Simulated assay, not measured.
Amino acid sequence: MEQIYTVLPKYFNKQSTAEENALIKRWKKENPTAFKEQKAIWDLTEGVEYIEFDSKASWSALQPKLSNAAVSAKSETKVIGMALWKKMTVAAVVIVVAVFGMNQFKHSSLTNEGTFFAEGLNTEFTTGAKGVELLAASDVLETALENGDKIWLNKGAVVEDMGARNGEYAVRVKKGEAFFDVNSRKDKAAPFFVHTSNAVVAVVGTQFTVTNKKEQTIIRVVEGVVEVMASDVNKIKLAAGEQAIISKGNIEKLKAFSPNFLAWKTGAFEFKATSIHKIALLLQTYYDVEIEVVEGTTGTPSGTFPVMEVDNLLNSLSLASGLKLEVIEANKKYRISNQ
């Protein structure tokens, strides 16, 4: 019903007649989803002036100049009126695209390594704002931020302590993994935010890790609650024991994770009759190596195993399970099988 789409702009702008209002109400009742979609599009153009156009009056002024017109004024009025509304519809679409495009550009700052954004905070840390860089070059680094909150950096991680600005405290995880132990922000302490290249974490007071790896950010919560934002319209809350993976503007929430992901901080792996297949998957990710477990291999190691060179750890696990370890290429490729 094309008439609906010519009346909707007037209705949303409160310039429609009583008859047009009745028409819209009937259509809204029959098409609630379509109405919501049109209202959402209109809301994007809020602040853009709507111009009421009297096509009949305009035609009356123009008619004397068209003495050779072959059609009546009445029929021409309809044609001109319809053409006008179509043009207004096209203009509205252009405005929506422009507004939406600007909005997307604003949020795309999340993917810009030098720019930080947190919805509703009125705060942006740009490339011109530099903080104190923390680097764990060859070993795990345990230290404190400027505000006293504790932080651990996994080997190779780079974090920038931006400090307090405009009533908020911000930290940037530029590379690798960091564990945060943040005091409660329920008191007068400044709100605490952790930024990566594609996400923002709002913290109330908790223990959690942030991993910035290529185009992916991983958040794991050990205690408390955090809010994870990929944009101001795409955000979720994570509680203790939950994790989220942020990639290309999408957030995937996962319920559980192995406590061994913190082995780099605790210094040990804990296994309780854990399948050697699951252990191999964990260690492949942790050490960035390839571990093949031959089909039919059985073994469920238990115990505490200190973090060490992968060759030594795999050898200890194999001995504890009565399995055979083959080193195909040191620090790169291994095979585990039954004896």
Rank of each mutant, 00 (worst) to 15 (best):
G114M: 07
V94G: 09
D181W: 03
V158G: 02
N198I: 00
D232E: 14
L84V: 11
A22W: 08
L23S: 15
M308Y: 04
S275H: 01
A98F: 09
K74R: 12
I276V: 03
A34Q: 09
E295Q: 11
L323E: 02
E2N: 09
K106R: 15
L262K: 12
A157D: 14
S275M: 03
T6G: 11
F271C: 12
S16G: 09
T304D: 04
S184P: 06
T266D: 15
E146L: 14
G205E: 14
Q216E: 14
M308R: 12
E119G: 07
N122A: 01
V173Y: 01
N103S: 01
A22R: 10
S231A: 11
V71G: 08
V307I: 13
I236C: 01
V210F: 00
S72Y: 13
A273V: 08
A240N: 08
I151H: 02
K14L: 03
M102G: 08
D139T: 15
G249K: 04
N198C: 01
A18K: 08
I219D: 06
G322H: 00
A73M: 13
D232C: 11
R185A: 03
R185H: 15
Q38W: 14
P301I: 07
T266R: 07
W59P: 02
E2Q: 13
V93C: 05
A57W: 04
Y5W: 14
V228C: 06
S321N: 02
V200M: 08
S67C: 02
K253N: 10
T196W: 00
S75P: 07
L282Y: 02
V79N: 10
A164N: 12
K65H: 09
